[in-house]
Design a protein around this nucleic acid. Structure first.
Length: 877
RNA sequence: GGGUGUUUAGCUCAGUUGGUUUAGAGCGCCUCGUUUACACCGAGGAGGUCAGGGGUUCGACUCCCUUAACACCCACCA
């Protein structure tokens, strides 16, 4: 074995061997215990980022753990076509080649998208493998493959037939860069610094004017009214009159509407019904004209007048302000911060516009679902505990989102995606929804038919992922649907709770009447050391594959798991990864010692494997250290199992880290090395084997590697460690006494800066056998030459220094009197003990404490009190 | 405007249902160390009024209220 572990040498081959031996496929068991989880399909737009890496680490831990606990376990992989996101990156690529999307036919562009997705699909899959993700690749899916598409069309058709999908003209969010609508969730609101412009709107045939405040003067070309509050005395007389729109000179009605508040702006509001959701409502109510002033690119159109037609929004704003100023119609400008909607894919300013789109009605009652609406179905899934969200606080978020939910706009004006299964008869206007290509109008028999050009929201298809991957609706997956749906668990980042999780619940509750999974575990986002979200634009991102190259997949995985908690962000930085690389190397060296130097497995016969793997006969253990390590191991097995079952992966990982490095390496193995120690090979083997098993979900590569140095089977398919029933409960206490004594002696030697071996005198007491039985351990680990036992403190003790630890008093022979050097240290210790004694005294003197605290606690305090007093005495006298 | 989270050692974070001698870890820092598993190491150490203020309790890092700072989510406020 090499002196340091070189992950690169082994990881790839280990993964290949797992895959080749079909360990990732569900393995049936007698109990019919199933566990299923789907991989949140990564977008095929780019490479794997740390968020993906964290997701794979977490899911892989769970899946390996379940497998080892003999669940029939399915972890199903796939990728997402990521409609707008992919179209954007492909467009960018075309731009580099000096091509525009318009230069290509629809089919040509789709071909380009496929080219892109294939390339990145391969990249992503290989990267997931690099991370060690043990997914069943034989079941891999793509959201736009044949079966998944079939599911999408089936879903659409059923919803349409139930009247849940409709087409209508509504105000929607328009991204002028993506040239498409966005759903409400796809708009990110950002606060920006802008100006509040106060503009004079003159009253027709009068000297009067109204003062209007707006942040977006360029929308004034779309104004068709001015509204004031009916309660506003200031503007009472203006209601019913006509105002003149500056620049264009168009006439505007002045109307009264409850919506207008008195204390915002000037209390007079310009109404732009075609470009503001509120104005839209007011416009409908008052029968106002809807004037669309923007084209698809977000530039002004002919309705803005000849001077402004074709201008960009920002450009037009400046020009308008200048013009108003010149005409004396700009009264003042104030700086203000306000929120604007931006596209979540390209960050462009979203323009609210009216257009004909397809929507999912979330409020319509559904006959087959007890007359509940989609909204109600989604709500009840969590309310009735069909689904448990971990951590629980996100349930509140979920409910809040549902309460604010409006009809879901699902049509997109982009090319890449599932095309709407909607056909129009150009002769009679009939709308036909069909999964098959329609060639003839069913009402007028015309052959003049055209399919809708729009595609579906990418989340419309990912909503079906938990079951479209299991063979719904065309049953191409055998028993999968029956066995693995609903999924046992859904694991994903909290940032897509609404986009994805909620939509999956919607789809499943609608189609089947039940939830798509039983539990939802949400992890946090990966941030840098300053808690800033990693992103390309900030340049603070760490490439996980790069880190794997440098430190190994196991180290990267552990750095993403250790010290993290459910739902909270994960701060990652290279030093942290380095720390876990060191741990992996430590593990390697522990085994190097055990294999290369101690050779404890050399005499193991094949038929003894079972014993090594599972239970160990603990009846005849003699030495304290052996009793202690097996007791510790037992506790660790119990704790780690519990933590994983409760989704506390960070804590589970920390427990193992401590156990391996401190208890096992620094204490047990150091003791094992001693010449006179009664080496218990069998026990060492047992502990070793169990450590590999416990660590396997967290660091699968090195553990598998080390396992195969001993066994000719695979760790990945071994069973999770079982608990020993009878353990040596007392051993922990006794061993801690040893540890304390050793530490105290080491500490004292350090204080007086002596490195050579010293003699020591032990004052005998009732527990002295603990010392006598473990003489060699104390001697070696604390660097002693000779240990002697004394019944009382000798007269001439000048060459010695007193050491007090647990209830033992020792005298370390330093050959000279050097009390001064450590006097300070001793004083400090005394002070701390005295303080503690005082605290306990206060407690014990408190009548209420004696009266109300449980007896157990009181006794503990009393014990503590006695112990500390005794110790203090020993130090002082 | 509504909601959620965070605030613990110089830095990054753990801390299970309130009671574990002196509140933990890693990194960093200091002092030692060429003991043949490991310097990606070993031994030891310094460093904390657990954000501030109230309250509940015999007892609060932990539960309740409140203040502050920061982060995030949601909301149509001109």
């Amino acid at each position: 074995m090499d002196k340091t572990y070189e992950s690169k040498k082994y990881e790839k081959n280990i993964y290949l061997s797992w895959e080749k031996n079909n360990f990732f496929k569900p393995k049936s068991n007698e109990n019919n215990d199933f566990f299923s989880i789907i991989l949140p399909p990564p977008n095929v737009t780019g490479a794997l980022h740390l968020g993906h890496a964290a997701m794979i680490a977490i899911e892989d831990i769970i899946v390996r753990f379940k497998r080892m606990n003999s669940f029939e376990t399915l972890w199903l992989p796939g990728t997402d076509h990521a409609a707008i996101a992919t179209q954007n990156v492909v467009e960018k690529k075309l731009k580099l080649e000096n091509k525009k999307i318009k230069d290509l036919t629809r089919d040509e562009f789709i071909k380009e998208c496929y080219k892109w997705t294939e390339e990145y699909h391969d990249k992503i899959v290989s990267q997931i493998k690099v991370m060690g993700g043990s997914l069943d690749w034989s079941r891999e899916r793509f959201t736009m493959d044949e079966h998944s598409s079939k599911a999408v069309y089936e879903f659409f058709e059923r919803m349409y037939n139930d009247g849940l999908i409709y087409k209508g003209a509504r105000m929607v969010n328009w991204c002028p860069r993506c040239m498409s609508t966005l759903s409400d969730d796809e708009v990110e609101h950002k606060n920006i610094k802008g100006n509040f412009y106060y503009i004079k709107y003159k009253i027709k045939d009068s000297e009067d004017f109204l003062e209007i405040a707006t942040t977006r003067p360029e929308t004034m070309f779309g104004d068709t009214a001015i509204a004031v509050s009916p309660k506003d005395d200031r503007y009472k007389d203006f209601i019913g009159k006509t105002a003149i729109l500056p620049i264009l000179g168009r006439e505007l009605k002045i109307i009264a509407d409850e919506y207008v508040s008195l204390d915002i702006g000037t209390g007079a509001l310009k109404i732009t019904p075609a470009h503001d959701p509120n104005d839209y409502e007011i416009g409908k109510k008052h029968n106002l004209e809807f004037i669309n002033i923007f084209d698809k690119n977000g530039n002004l159109n002919e309705n803005a007048g000849r001077d402004f037609k074709g201008m960009q929004r920002e450009e037009a704003r400046e020009k308008i302000i200048k013009l108003l100023e010149k005409n004396g119609d700009l009264l003042k400008t104030e700086k203000m911060e306000h929120s604007v909607g931006t596209c979540y894919r390209c960050s462009s300013l979203v323009e609210p516009s009216i257009s004909e789109q397809w929507f999912v009605d979330v409020n319509k009652k559904i006959k087959n679902r007890e007359n509940k609406s989609l909204k109600e179905l989604m709500k009840e899934a969590v309310e009735n505990k069909e689904i448990e969200i971990i951590p629980k606080r996100f349930e509140k978020n979920y409910f809040m989102w549902i309460d604010n939910l409006k009809d879901w706009c699902i049509s997109r004006q982009i090319i890449w995606g599932h095309r709407l299964p909607v056909y129009y008869c150009l002769d009679c206007g009939e709308i036909i929804v069909s999964q098959e290509k329609v060639k003839e109008c069913k009402s007028c028999k015309s052959k003049n038919i055209k399919q809708d050009k729009d595609t579906l929201d990418t989340w419309f298809s990912s909503a079906l992922w938990p079951f479209s991957t299991m063979g719904w609706p065309d049953n191409d997956r055998g028993l999968d649907f029956e066995k693995f749906f609903p999924n046992t668990l859904l694991e994903t980042g909290y940032d897509i709770l609404f986009f994805w999780v909620a939509r999956m619940i919607l789809a499943s509750k609608y189609l089947f009447g039940f939830s798509p999974f039983k539990k939802v575990y949400l992890h946090g986002l990966v941030c840098d050391k300053n808690s800033k979200k990693m992103s390309k634009s900030k340049g603070n991102g760490i490439d996980p594959i790069n880190m794997v190259e440098k430190y190994g997949a196991d180290a990267v995985r552990m750095s993403l798991i250790s010290g993290t908690t459910p739902g909270n962000n994960i701060n990652l930085y290279e030093e942290k990864i380095e720390g876990y690389r060191n741990f992996i190397n430590k593990l390697w060296n522990i085994f190097r010692f055990i294999y290369d130097f101690e050779n404890i497995f050399s005499d193991v016969k094949i038929n003894e494997m079972d014993k090594l793997e599972n239970t160990y006969d603990i009846e005849n253990i003699e030495s304290l250290a052996d009793k202690w390590i097996i007791t510790r191991l037992n506790n660790v097995i119990s704790q780690v199992t519990k933590k994983i079952n409760n989704y506390k992966f960070g804590e589970a990982s920390d427990i193992l880290y401590d156990f391996v490095w401190k208890d096992f390496a620094s204490w047990y193995i150091e003791i094992y090395k001693l010449d006179n120690y009664l080496n218990n090979k069998e026990l060492l083997r047992y502990v070793t084997v169990n450590i590999l098993k416990l660590l396997h979900p967290f660091s699968p590569f090195i553990t598998e590697n080390l396992w195969q140095n001993i066994f000719n089977n695979y760790l990945i398919s071994s069973s999770w460690p079982s608990l020993n029933k009878n353990i040596y409960k007392e051993s922990e206490k006794d061993f801690n006494i040893l540890k304390n004594i050793i530490s105290s002696i080491r500490n004292t030697k350090n204080q007086i800066k002596i490195n050579k071996k010293l003699n020591i005198l032990f004052l005998e007491n009732k527990d002295i056998n603990t010392i006598k039985d473990n003489l060699e351990i104390i001697k070696s680990l604390s660097g002693l030459e000779k240990i002697e036992f004394i019944k009382s403190i000798p007269e001439n003790i000048n060459d010695y220094i007193k050491v007090v630890s647990s209830n033992f008093v020792m005298f370390l022979e330093i050959g000279f009197s050097d009390i001064e050097k450590i006097k300070k240290e001793r004083e400090k210790e005394i002070k701390i003990i005295k303080n503690s004694i005082k605290n306990i005294e206060n407690k014990l003197n408190n009548k209420n404490f004696i009266l109300k605290a449980p007896e157990e606690i009181i006794n503990k305090e009393k014990e503590k009190y006695n112990y500390l007093n005794e110790k203090l005495n020993k130090i002082l006298n």
